[in-house]
Computed example of a mutant assay.
Amino acid sequence: MNIEKRVLITAPLGADARNIAEVLAAAGIDTRVCRDLAMAAEEFRAGCAALLITEEAMDSAQAGLFSAQLERQATWSDVPVVLITSGGQFSPVSTRATALVGARANLTLIERPLRASTLVATLKTALRARSRQYEIRDLLADRETLLASLEERVVERTTKLQQMVEELEAFSYSVSHDLRAPLRVLDGYAQALIEDYGATLEPGAKDLLARISRTAHRMDRLTQDVLAYTRVSRGELTLEPVDLEVMLREVIEQYPSLIASKHLIHLQAPLGAVLGHGPSLIQCFSNLLENALKFKREGVVPHVEIYAVTRGDRIRVTVADQGMGIDLSQQQRIFGMFERGAAHKQVEGTGIGLAIVKKAAERMGGSVGVESAPGQGARFWLELAKAD
């Protein structure tokens, strides 16, 4: 017997239960006779297609236990309950029995005297309804299985992608590191030729050697930026309180590319302290300050302002310039690798500096952005958690 297709019968008076079971068996319906509602509740937990109960069975102390069992059905389940009554739908006995079954019950009333055809037709209708519930259950189970499978596949693919990214970053680091040595040699040879044989070289030859030297310098800067990006992406970052004013003054005073223009940079103290990684912050602000000085408007002396604003438990540091500005359509794109604004392509650069800033900010639990318009300068900001 398939317990999911059986009908549980609870009819305590006389031969009612046996007679009902015989009628249903003749119609090909499996049944299980229960002596009382306690047994019916126990069998119900094992599984059934429908419950057939006489009103006498409901008039017992076990009705509450049975009703509670119905209330605990799974969300997909609404087992049909057929209640045999003597007094019609609105009789006191039927009303009390209906209340005991509970609001959750999928209830059908059959009035005595019973006709076999009515009983069989009612139970077959109930069994068809239950069969549809089983289909819904199976569909839900299939969905859960599919979702679990998809989740496993997503985790697996994410892991593989992460491994690929790490391998690519390691490869990038290795290639960039190994490229620097031959680039320095290439530049050294070009400079040596210019210095030792410059007087005897034709102008065209000297120009070609100068181009070789400049190209080697650009390639070396590119490899340095790739190495910096890889270090920011892969290195372990220990976050600790960093005094922004002290750190920025050191960057302005000591960074080789900024020393000559330090008088053009104004720092508005106080800036406060953030929770960050010192070397990564130095990399971020040196890149932002270099860009602020480099992308200047023609005929305009660059002027850079650095200021900070506290925003709740975070500090936003802004580097503002009076340079070329950036069109709104390009303001997200410029933070990608090898991406540059349309107006900036005439100025030498690798297109990696802002990608380094973005990656470093994210790894420190912060964010980065820009506010700008063409010809109106740019305000690049870096926001991090405030140090306690």
Score class of each variant (00 low, 15 high):
residue 1 M to L: 13
residue 3 I to R: 15
residue 3 I to C: 13
residue 3 I to S: 13
residue 5 K to V: 00
residue 14 G to S: 13
residue 17 A to P: 02
residue 19 N to Y: 05
residue 24 L to D: 03
residue 25 A to R: 10
residue 28 G to T: 02
residue 35 R to A: 12
residue 38 A to G: 03
residue 39 M to D: 15
residue 41 A to R: 06
residue 42 E to I: 06
residue 44 F to A: 12
residue 50 A to G: 01
residue 52 L to G: 01
residue 56 E to D: 11
residue 57 A to S: 12
residue 59 D to S: 11
residue 60 S to R: 02
residue 62 Q to V: 11
residue 63 A to T: 12
residue 64 G to S: 09
residue 65 L to F: 05
residue 67 S to F: 02
residue 70 L to Y: 02
residue 70 L to Q: 02
residue 72 R to A: 14
residue 77 S to F: 06
residue 85 T to I: 15
residue 89 Q to T: 09
residue 90 F to H: 14
residue 93 V to S: 14
residue 95 T to S: 14
residue 95 T to Y: 01
residue 96 R to A: 15
residue 98 T to G: 14
residue 99 A to Y: 05
residue 105 A to W: 03
residue 108 T to L: 00
residue 113 P to S: 05
residue 120 V to C: 04
residue 124 K to H: 11
residue 125 T to A: 09
residue 127 L to M: 10
residue 129 A to P: 01
residue 130 R to M: 04
residue 135 E to H: 05
residue 136 I to S: 02
residue 140 L to N: 11
residue 143 R to A: 06
residue 146 L to F: 04
residue 150 L to V: 06
residue 151 E to Y: 01
residue 154 V to Y: 12
residue 155 V to W: 00
residue 158 T to G: 04
residue 161 L to G: 11
residue 165 V to N: 10
residue 170 A to Q: 10
residue 173 Y to N: 12
residue 173 Y to P: 01
residue 174 S to Y: 09
residue 182 P to M: 03
residue 184 R to Q: 07
residue 184 R to S: 03
residue 189 Y to N: 07
residue 196 D to E: 11
residue 199 A to W: 00
residue 202 E to M: 02
residue 202 E to Y: 10
residue 205 A to C: 13
residue 210 A to S: 13
residue 213 S to F: 15
residue 213 S to Q: 15
residue 216 A to L: 08
residue 217 H to I: 13
residue 218 R to E: 14
residue 218 R to D: 14
residue 219 M to Y: 08
residue 220 D to Q: 11
residue 225 D to A: 07
residue 230 T to L: 02
residue 230 T to W: 00
residue 231 R to Q: 10
residue 232 V to D: 11
residue 233 S to E: 05
residue 237 L to H: 11
residue 239 L to Q: 10
residue 247 M to A: 08
residue 250 E to A: 12
residue 254 Q to I: 04
residue 257 S to K: 13
residue 258 L to G: 12
residue 265 I to K: 05
residue 267 L to T: 12
residue 267 L to P: 00
residue 269 A to N: 06
residue 270 P to A: 07
residue 271 L to E: 09
residue 271 L to V: 15
residue 271 L to C: 13
residue 272 G to Y: 13
residue 274 V to P: 08
residue 276 G to P: 07
residue 277 H to C: 09
residue 278 G to P: 12
residue 280 S to A: 15
residue 285 F to R: 03
residue 285 F to W: 09
residue 285 F to S: 00
residue 285 F to G: 00
residue 288 L to G: 03
residue 293 L to K: 01
residue 294 K to R: 07
residue 294 K to C: 02
residue 297 R to M: 05
residue 301 V to R: 06
residue 303 H to P: 06
residue 304 V to L: 09
residue 308 A to E: 03
residue 308 A to R: 01
residue 308 A to N: 03
residue 312 G to E: 04
residue 326 I to R: 05
residue 330 Q to S: 00
residue 330 Q to F: 01
residue 331 Q to K: 02
residue 335 F to H: 02
residue 342 A to P: 05
residue 342 A to F: 07
residue 342 A to R: 05
residue 344 H to W: 15
residue 349 G to H: 09
residue 350 T to W: 15
residue 355 A to F: 04
residue 366 G to P: 09
residue 370 V to I: 15
residue 372 S to F: 05
residue 373 A to E: 15
residue 373 A to I: 03
residue 375 G to K: 13
residue 376 Q to N: 15
residue 376 Q to T: 03
residue 376 Q to P: 09
residue 377 G to Q: 08
residue 382 L to H: 14
residue 386 K to D: 03
residue 386 K to P: 12
residue 388 D to H: 15
